[in-house]
């Protein structure tokens, strides 16, 4: 259908041209880099097999995934409340959820740092029981969690709002408690939005730099490593690491997007 109309429809043609500009920019940037990197294969292979680079990519993705898992445990209940309950001060809660979206990342970083540093309100007691955040893995996770939370919560909330209240009501009159109605009806029907929200938030978490270096310069996440190599070894070294990261991200997200088609498929049938 779309193929035929694209040729005949002037409106769609002009939309494609305009949309092409934005796509073109990304593609051009990628091609530009790819051509340069592929012109020195031995160098590329050396960087790609550098354990420091591989460790850093794995660390970044794992910390991101870890943040998203925590976010799901606490974010899903919050998203459901925001979707279903009407209460005083709901607007304020919504604004609080969105705060990380609006703040410059350095500001987010400072917020996280002074709360979780060794002498911080939460950081101090946690440090004494052997759970340090400064220059440690938990520090990376908590910074990522903070900046990516609105993406996940808002997406999950949209998913919950899309499930008709009538379905929940019927489930309850059929003998389901609120919790089982949530588990058997609401959750499966919003699985796609929750999944997409998690991918979006994960992508955001992986990309975080400013907030992460403030609390945890070490161990180096990929952004820190690229910046470090850029300032010590120059553009060639850092852009090759960037290229390797691009390849890793591109393949991972391609697979994740593909998988999303199998989640919440009932939607397409209705």
């Amino acid at each position: 259908m779309a193929q035929i109309s694209l040729i005949r429809d002037r409106c769609l043609i002009s939309f494609s041209l305009l949309g092409g500009v934005i796509l073109g920019l990304t593609v051009l940037a990628l091609l530009n880099m790819t051509v340069k990197e592929l012109s020195d294969i031995p160098h590329l292979l050396r960087v790609a097999t550098d354990t420091k680079v591989i460790d850093s990519i794995v660390l970044t993705m794992a910390a991101g995934a870890n943040a998203i898992l925590i976010l799901m445990i606490f974010g899903i209940p919050l998203a459901y409340l925001l979707a279903r309950a009407d209460f005083k001060g709901k607007r304020i809660i919504e604004t609080i959820v969105d705060i990380p979206l609006m703040l410059p990342h350095t500001v987010a970083g400072i917020l996280v740092y002074i709360l979780f540093m060794k002498r911080g309100l939460l950081g101090a007691p946690l440090y004494t029981i052997g759970f340090p955040f400064e220059d440690a893995y938990p520090g990376i996770v908590v910074a990522m969690l903070f900046v990516s939370s609105p993406y996940f919560i808002n997406s999950a909330r949209e998913g919950f709002e899309k499930v008709p209240v009538h379905l929940e009501n019927v489930a309850r009159t059929l003998g389901a408690t609120r919790l089982s109605a949530f588990r058997h009806v609401v959750l499966p029907l919003s699985a796609r939005e929750i999944y997409n929200g998690a991918i979006l938030a994960w992508g955001r978490a992986i990309g975080e730099f400013a907030a992460v270096i403030m609390i945890a310069y070490y161990p180096m996440v990929i952004s820190t490593l690229i910046y470090y190599r850029f300032s010590t070894s120059g553009i060639k070294e850092s852009s090759t690491i960037a290229f390797v990261m691009i390849l890793a991200c591109f393949s991972v997200f391609l697979v994740l997007r593909h998988l999303s088609r199998f989640i919440g498929r009932h939607d397409d049938r209705v």
Partner: peptide, 29 residues
């Protein structure tokens, strides 16, 4: 609470669970 009242409600839009087969819908309660 609703789940303890032994009252069944059928809405105008039927509100069938779209992710369950007919069989599963009927067996849900």
């Amino acid at each position: 609470p609703p789940e303890k009242r032994r009252i069944a409600l059928v809405y105008q839009d039927y509100s069938l669970f779209p992710h369950m087969t007919v069989e599963k819908n009927i067996g849900f309660g």
